[in-house]
Design a protein around this nucleic acid. Structure first.
Lengths: 285, 285
DNA sequence: GGGTATTTGTCCGTATGTATT
DNA sequence: AAATACATACGGACAAATACC
């Protein structure tokens, strides 16, 4: 039993895209042209295009046409670092981005005092309603939006430990983890990252300029920081668009990251981890 | 200027779902009913449902109806472990799953000899065409498909180091990394994980029983193993459905994982990392 | 800036097929 | 076998965005 017609059209176009017959970034025939090519109605052609759109193969631009999507050069973030300096925080972020010859930018933080709500309270192991400081920052690379980050700290750090700079809407250049260690004696001896993926919400679609149909998911990374007593004193929630980001963790003795070697950077940073898995499975399936 | 009608319908239904007015797993009114409720055509109602479907809020079942999607209890995999025992491989996988009182199952491996193709050759730093052993396994939890894993080893390990069991289609119960260390003196002193997300291919849709429109992405984890000389001797590619998996990495001194404490497991394992970020952004936006 | 042609987006109505109960 | 509900496919009309003259 053959596939429905819109699938046949979509798969034929997919084949042309993957074979290179339709080049990356080039424009597809208009819906009217495709209607004639495939002897189908315009709505059926649109269903085929929608199928390709969901899979990220093409994108439509009102008033212009339908285009084969370009490959985005991914940015690689290393999650394992030095726990005492906050690994993956501002400092590491800036160094890592500059090592790959891109220009980072961080917005000034938006600081708020909140009452701990359910999921955040649970992650920090505090009761709901506990006062928290939240610091929210937008991060850019080469002018394009890259991540949204919100960090949460118990207000007790400010009230009892004197961490006044946490409630000031000013960037902490040396990193909040270093600041807390140096000024307040609260040392981060370890952290745990939890990595998940979900559909973006409206704010994220707008900020990252993602397609409004929500087909591009976002990474959500929860970083819980532990002090010397094994207590949770910090939660950092960072959201990254999944189409332009990779994450790396190193365990044990591992040679230096490729990104640290500018000359070799192009070779691995641009390798798309998606493709080989698919190839491997297809070959062996 | 208001949104198009199908968006208004979709957002009204979304509100009802998130407010609990429409319960998880319950059936929505039929398309005909919705057509009358909202005074729209059936096609417009279908556009609204499609919008909700793309975001994973509802699912349609031909002949039955449209249903609010149930939340899936995620399984958490720890990526950081003991490099010498393969961290995150069979042994750790089984222990971790059993600690959370779920029943794991691993298929016998499908073993093949391949010539290294582009992306895999690059990850292993070998020339294209180099002979490789690939070992492919399907992994299940509680009978449901959980991951697809393919490991690649240079054939030189078999030919020169005598790692004969790599080319036998039999599971290596102690783990391939332990086997290579004990039998062949090839010790894994570290590994690097690369984490990406992409749309599933047809094999993955079929195996994981994902919705065929490809809206549920998959995690792809590349694990590159390094020996004492800092050489890459192993590549493991694992694919997980993104809707039922989370990943955790621990850095520095971190208290034991929640999953290791069966009583407390429910509290954090079921916390959805997606929600708090969204809440946080909404509150502060 | 304005007007026009092109292209995709939205919305309608209808008919028929397919899966499930 | 019949009823129900979603899936596919067609055709038409107008709106909105964009590009170009």
């Amino acid at each position: 039993m053959p596939d429905p017609m819109y699938r046949q059209i979509a798969e034929d176009l997919q084949r042309k895209i993957e074979s290179g017959e339709l080049e990356r970034g080039s424009q597809l025939p208009t819906e009217i042209d495709l209607r004639e090519q495939y002897s189908a109605s315009r709505n059926t052609v649109r269903d085929a295009i929608k199928w390709l759109t969901t899979r990220g193969l093409v994108e439509t631009r009102p008033g212009q046409g339908t285009f084969v999507t370009e490959r985005i050069k991914p940015f690689v973030t290393t999650l394992t670092g030095n726990p005492a300096s906050g690994g993956g925080e501002d400092l590491v972020y800036l160094a890592e981005v500059e090592a790959s010859r891109r220009r980072p930018k961080i917005s000034p933080p938006r600081v708020e005092i909140q009452q701990a709500a359910d999921p955040i309270a649970r992650a920090l192991w505090v009761d709901e309603g506990t006062p928290l400081v939240s610091r929210h920052q937008e991060r850019f690379i080469d002018g394009t939006p890259w991540s949204l980050q919100t960090s949460f700290y118990p207000m007790s750090l400010v009230l009892e430990k004197g961490a006044d700079r946490l409630i000031q809407a000013i960037d902490i250049p040396e990193g909040a983890v270093n600041y807390l260690a140096d000024e307040c004696g609260v040392k981060q001896v370890g952290y745990r990252d939890s990595i998940a993926v979900r559909a973006p919400d409206e704010n994220e679609v707008a900020f990252f300029k993602l397609p409004s149909d929500g087909r591009v998911p976002v990474f959500v990374i929860f970083r819980t920081g532990f002090n010397e007593e094994g207590e949770r004193f910090r939660l950092m929630v960072t959201v990254f668009p999944a189409d332009r980001n990779r994450f790396v963790t190193n365990v044990g003795a591992v040679p230096p990251t490729i990104a640290a070697l500018p000359s070799a950077q192009a070779s691995e940073a641009t390798a798309e981890p998606g493709t080989p898995a698919r190839d491997a499975l297809k070959r062996s399936g």
